[in-house]
Design a protein around this nucleic acid. Structure first.
Lengths: 227, 227
DNA sequence: TATTTAACTTAAGCTTGCTTAAGTTTTCAA
DNA sequence: TTGAAAACTTAAGCAAGCTTAAGTTAAATA
């Protein structure tokens, strides 16, 4: 069994990794199909192939789950993606949303050698501009502190901005426009019961975020030890 | 007829452009097949497809020739390739031979937007490190002076190094090691009849090049007007 | 617990780009 | 000018990755 990686297989593995929950790591083929914008049939098909390659566990009607081998490959794709993003942002001064779709294609192309040079150029970053962790060349993720979403943060408390979830909206670009960056400190001022929007203070400036945005922001406690 | 470009089609177009002679622009399918490392049958097949797309002229047994439309696409691929090369060399400090194979894959990936940003970053270069011309975004090549190969250069005369032909050998890296760069001036000292090797003086240092190397070096006359 | 419906898989078939093998056309040398 | 060799094309078939349609299993509800 050769580990022959095609672009398509890499995308399946990456997407399985992205979809899976921390506990039950099983992913339904239908869910996968939706994310990859292909038919369910295509996903079932591929599930079998990845199974034969030893990259996922798979039983018909029971979903797929990455094996250690599959997860390592998935993390490698994610590594490439995030390093490409950072690299293009840094050299060409592009915004995250401009760079995301490019990285989607480039992540399958560069050799390991090139990726390592890019990693070196960026001085081996642990996190991308969203605060998402970048696996190192051995597929290991940097240690991550406990975090809470802004929707669940305690009113009155201080936090650091830790992560901006990268769905398809241009949230990071918007926050950047507001002058916000990762690791900035913030105080939760109030939460409106009516619509769950949250008021926060950052750099002595007040901002209000809708629930939709607050849900995408992960925070790390700033007062003393987190527990 | 959609202009749906696949990686494979782009490679065929690019290769036809690279192989063709300035006068008779016809390229035999067998020659193409050899360069692309596929069977002759595959090339004949593709010739028909490219013909249907209006990208080449093709009559069975008569070879292919790029149409204006095909040439424009080919030049665009070449543009991407050379810009990627330059970009990686400049940002990551890689050598030409390290970067060439990467560019071979990347040339099919980036969006026009990204390529234009790279072009901008590089300040719209006209030539790559080999002295090969880089088409601009409209597919136009920079004006090129008349040149002679070092094998045909006149003994005693002065020239500028204009171009280093980029075949598969690591010639450019070797010349760089010797301290030679494009546009340096050189004097042809002598040519050995026995093996057609050439002695030249560059920066007051003498070098001897075999016929094989001399053939890859294009020069532009340095004394007054060329004729 | 039975049955309907939703979720998922299998089957058949398409396209792209390749292969090998068989068939044509050119070309070139006698 | 002809006929063998070289050059090229066509035919048949394969693999990957998709599609739609038909079939199966699991889950949900009565």
């Amino acid at each position: 069994m050769e580990i022959m990686n095609t672009i398509s297989k890499e995308n399946y593995l990456k997407t399985i990794y992205q979809i899976k929950k921390p506990k039950s790591k099983k992913v339904s083929t239908a869910h996968l199909a939706k994310r990859l914008e292909v038919s369910n049939a295509a996903t079932s098909d591929m599930a079998k192939k990845l199974f034969d390659l030893g990259l996922v566990k798979y039983q018909p009607y029971r979903g797929v789950e990455l094996t250690a081998k599959g997860e390592k490959l998935a993390l490698n794709v994610i590594r490439r993606h995030r390093l490409w993003e950072l690299f293009l942002i840094k050299t060409l001064n592009l915004s995250w949303s401009e760079v995301h779709t490019e990285a989607e294609r480039l992540e399958h192309q560069a050799s390991d050698f090139l990726i390592d040079r890019i990693d070196e150029y960026l001085d081996y970053p642990d996190f991308d501009p969203h605060g998402d962790p970048i696996p190192n060349k051995n597929g290991e993720l940097p240690v991550q502190p406990d975090s809470v979403k802004l929707t669940a943060a305690e009113v009155g408390k201080f936090y650091f901005i830790h992560r901006v979830k990268n769905d398809d909206i241009k949230l990071l670009d918007y926050l950047t426009e507001l002058g916000l960056k990762l690791n900035m400190q913030l105080q939760v001022l109030s939460r409106l019961e009516f619509d769950n929007s949250v008021r926060v203070k950052i750099n002595n400036k007040e901002h209000s975020f809708s629930e939709k945005i607050a849900e995408k922001l992960s925070l790390v406690s700033a007062d003393g030890e987190k527990r």
